[in-house]
Amino acid sequence: METIIREETLKTPFVKFDSDKGLIEIKGRSIPENSIEFYKPLIDWLDKYADQPTGKTSVNIKLEYFNTSSSKCILDIFRKLELLHKKGNEVEINWYYEEDDEDMFEAGEDYQSIINIPFKMIEMED
């Protein structure tokens, strides 16, 4: 499967979806006006990945900012991962937040309350 790599822009995050390594990374800012346009290919990728996943899938979410328009798309990504997890595949989700960023910590908790996979909450020091 093809690896998706997208460099960070002013409004969209760095993204790496690597099927060989079973590694999914989203880092930076996600504040586009039209987030569906940005996330749709990533969600489609996860559908394909679910057919032949790597032994363990590691997910690193390291967001600085995200808008409400992205929030639902990020949930859709977690829903795909939840399906993968339900089928018996190991999925590890690491949710990073900056020291003292309560809002980003709470955002992680929001997703954790909806998605049935344990999140590892990781505080980053400046």
Partner: peptide, 18 residues
């Protein structure tokens, strides 16, 4: 917030009132 995030369909316009 969690309820809307979990349950609403979002349009391409935005976050369903979020």
């Amino acid at each position: 917030y969690r309820e809307i995030l979990n349950n609403s369909e979002f349009s391409d316009k935005g976050g369903g009132g979020l």
